[in-house]
């Protein structure tokens, strides 16, 4: 009897304790985050150029972006293309690497470290590598493919310099850093209770069956995590295009975040850039809220299914 009462009492306290546990983050958000976020919202209704005092122009930035700006829609389309391809591909490659590296063979630590290497090398080094591989004239890939090109009498692929291939090339380059999500998958794999595998072994389940019926379902929390994070991150893709293609050729890799950056740094239109940021936030928020519905397919060991 006493125990039941204490559980009920704790449930009542839970509301307070919940806020207490969240309080460092909540405090940070409200005290340190609130002002900058509010200011950027305010800037989106002004013609702020980062030098002069902003002047309020109400919805003018939003009107222009939505009704009289071709590049806005174009860059949004390019970004959507990137999201649709890069997110699933990233998840697939990350999972593949994690499965590959979740074995107990000799030297696995070395392999894991090597696979993670691209995540720690400098961006400049990565850029040089990509150029060295993909550069159409001197690049290794085209040198290797030369016999094929000769066989089919086709012109060598232009990779990031070809406007039809540039988006895919950048996505391909992005996969080099899949080691980051691999780490998350690996960490999750360690949380899978051995007892589950043991009882499956008793039932005589094959490796493949164990993967499909035990590992994969129990991996869904981190797959879900990487999916949501991939969505949020891919909508803001920028750096790789900035370094490799400058948004080109012919604006084929002119992502939304790139356009936003240009509005800010090249057009000195911070007000417009802020409006773009808030439009992006709304778009990503809607997509994410829909994506969060997938949560019901996620299998959390700690919850009733």
């Amino acid at each position: 009897m006493g125990k039941t009462i204490s559980i009920i009492k704790m449930r009542k306290q839970e509301n307070l304790i919940g806020y207490l546990f969240a309080s460092p983050w909540l405090f940070g958000l409200i005290v340190l985050g609130f002002f900058p976020i509010l200011m950027s919202f305010y800037f989106s209704f002004t013609n702020y150029n980062m030098v002069s005092a902003p002047k309020i122009i109400w919805f003018e930035n939003y009107r222009i972006l939505l009704t009289n700006d071709n590049l806005f829609w174009k860059s949004l389309g390019i970004t959507l293309y990137h999201v649709v391809i890069a997110v699933p591909l990233g998840i697939f490659v990350g999972l593949f690497l994690a499965f590959l590296l979740n074995s107990k063979i000799k030297g696995i630590s070395i392999y894991r470290t090597l696979f993670y290497l691209p995540n720690v090398v400098s961006v400049v080094a990565m850029t040089l590598l990509w150029m060295w591989l993909f550069q159409p004239n001197f690049g290794l890939i085209n040198q290797l493919l030369k016999p094929l090109y000769d066989l089919f009498k086709m012109e060598p692929l232009g990779w990031y310099l070809d406007q039809d291939l540039s988006k895919l090339t950048l996505i391909l380059m992005g996969l080099w850093t899949a080691g980051g999500s691999m780490v998350i998958y690996l960490a999750q794999m360690q949380d899978i209770p051995v007892t589950l595998y043991e009882s499956a072994d008793i039932d005589g389940a094959s490796w493949f069956k164990k993967m499909i019926h035990i590992t994969l379902p129990l991996m869904t929390p981190s797959i879900f995590f990487n999916f949501i994070m991939g969505l949020i991150g891919s909508f803001q893709v920028f750096t790789i295009a900035y370094i490799m293609t400058g948004g080109g050729p012919s604006r084929s890799t002119y992502y939304y975040a790139y356009y936003l950056f240009d509005k800010m740094m090249n057009d000195n239109a911070m007000g417009m850039a802020s409006a773009m940021a808030w439009i992006l936030l709304v778009i990503v928020l809607i997509v994410t809220v829909f994506a969060l519905r997938l949560n019901k397919y996620v299998f959390y060991l700690g919850e009733d299914s």
Binding site: V124, T127, L128, M131, Q135, P136, N137, E155, P156, G158, L161, D162, I243, P249
Partner: peptide, 18 residues
């Protein structure tokens, strides 16, 4: 020459000093 030949041959990168 084709344009892609020319672009590929003249590819430069100021930041990297190429």
């Amino acid at each position: 020459f084709t344009r892609s030949q020319l672009t590929a041959f003249g590819d430069a990168n100021t930041m990297l000093g190429i």
